[in-house]
Design a binder for these strands. Structure first.
Lengths: 312, 312
DNA sequence: ATGAAAGCGCTAACAC
DNA sequence: GTGTTAGCGCTTTCAT
């Protein structure tokens, strides 16, 4: 009588099926399968056997509705193609690994409208918490997060006002630190190259570097908005036999591990993305466990001069 | 009386709340919010207004339980850090974008035990379909997939027996094709370097290349199991001023876009990962729509000699 | 065009 | 240690 998935051939197995086979009540089966409450070793074994023989897979939808508990953590990030975010996810996964919580990822493709939609979808599954990239949320997105009724951790950037909790680095401070280092090493004419990756970062880095050096040949430092375009620039400079780091210094941002193995190590700021993911996930796990937690964790980006900045 | 998420302060808004505010039945609200059935324009507006003013977010858990319909597609892949899989996901997302289906990703970290667990978790949410990387599933994983009762699409490799449907390339054929090309270009002493990425592929490629050339200096071709270690090897060879591609040819596998911008374009096979994702997702979407679909889609990997193989 | 009733599969609470 | 009961918030079905 009731709706069934159009594709579905056989009806799904329920607790009742297992209960009948094991000659116990549904409740006992439920207890065994969740390791909850006291069940005698004998019944426990009978139930496990029955469940295994039938190939029973519990229905989490029903369980979640009944218990009002959904052990999912929504993670809303711009993109999986940007190397930054898989790193964050690694940290989140690690931190959640010894909890019952599981991450569920949604990508916004850097579009605020899409972010709103993804958030709405996420929240409609009533997750135990939400981790969302960025601190500048406004309008509907901010309202949804503020009214989510679950822990909300904004990550990556701490320069702004958090809705609930925030974990990240101050990009302003990180930029200032890099500027200090550049000046302290005696570079004077500094170019800044900024590109939000869509296609190949390396190729774009080459292009942009060629262009800026043509336009302004007397620059003695190039600061790139991320390591990938920075690495492209580096390859270009090496090919043109420019003297790096003496006549021309280079620096990127993020410390991508993927670039280990390049001819020169690019100067960069390590933004500790794995640690950010870990800390964010820990906040949610702690809140679920009733442990009070920080609402603002500001990590320090770590400067690394690599081989593309001269000594100070 | 009933359980509530321990973190939950305020009770969640229900259809009932919206219904009361709009002076209609829950049923009417449900119809309006799902665009289902005939509702007069006037009530429709009243309902939307009430829902918006309250900030109502529907509870998908309840909806899914009642309708036995979950518009999620489980995607089980080894890792998000391996560049291959974000590409596949891009394709999946694209293909699902104009359907009600949404992808949900689980990572196995190349561990069969973890894959089993991830699959079990996925299936317990009763998704509309499953896309899983790899065709060699055995034991519990195979049984779960075979009995899932929903479309199952195995992706990447087609060399094996599919459970339900399969989309990918024949890695055997791709390897044979590359071998043909290597031989046709007159290379004679061929080394094969294989590494499943964990850390930096580039660095590993350098190391392995140094090692194999030391051990066997008279090789005239190096075939890498993937582009990333191949690119590392290429950087090493260029630094050592080896004559590529004349004295030493190089080839990788996968055609990573991220490498565009390297000094030389590495010879490779394009494995069409985005297309694989698209086709896999389309199979599931079609099945949901009742459209019969292929159960075996074998794409041809495309050979690209790049700049690291001499002419034939 | 709208409403009433039943129930999806499971779990919290309580009884025994 | 085990069973009984009620009900989570929604959608299906059927009645009006």
């Amino acid at each position: 009588v009731r709706g069934r998935n159009p594709y579905d051939g056989k009806p799904q197995l329920t607790l009742r099926d297992v209960a009948e086979k094991a000659h116990v009540s549904e409740m006992t089966v439920s207890r065994v399968l969740r390791n909850r409450g006291d069940v005698s070793e004998k019944t426990r074994e009978r139930v496990f056997l029955a469940a295994r023989e039938l190939g029973y897979v519990p229905n989490k939808i029903a369980g979640a509705l009944a218990s009002n508990r959904v052990n999912l953590v929504g993670v809303v990030i711009p993109s999986l193609s940007n190397l930054v975010f898989p790193d964050v996810l690694t940290g989140i996964t690690e931190a959640l690994d010894d909890t019952p919580l599981q991450p569920v990822v949604g990508a916004t493709n850097y579009s605020p409208e899409r972010e709103e939609k993804v958030l709405y979808e996420m929240l409609s599954w009533r997750p135990s918490g939400v981790i969302v990239a960025g601190i500048e949320h406004e309008g509907a997105a901010r309202a949804m997060l503020a009214n989510a009724g679950v822990p909300v951790v904004q990550i990556m950037d701490t320069d702004g006002e958090e809705i609930d909790a925030v974990v990240g680095i101050s990009h302003i401070a990180a930029g200032a630190r890099m500027a200090d280092e550049i000046l302290a090493r005696g570079y004077k004419r500094i170019g800044f190259l900024c590109y939000y990756e869509g296609g190949s970062g390396l190729g774009k880095g080459r292009e942009m570097t060629a262009e800026i050096l043509e336009r302004t040949p007397d620059l003695d430092f190039l600061y790139y908005s991320n390591d990938m375009i920075g690495a492209g620039g580096m390859l270009y400079c090496l090919e043109k036999r420019l003297s790096v780091p003496d006549d021309l210094g280079l620096a990127g941002f993020n410390a991508y591990e993927i670039l280990d193995g390049f001819p020169l190590r690019l100067a960069t700021m390590d933004t500790h993305r794995v640690a950010i993911g870990q800390a964010a996930a820990k906040i949610i796990a702690d809140r679920m466990a009733g442990i009070p937690s920080e609402t603002r964790i500001e990590l320090d980006a770590t400067f690394d001069p690599g081989g593309t900045m001269r000594a100070r």
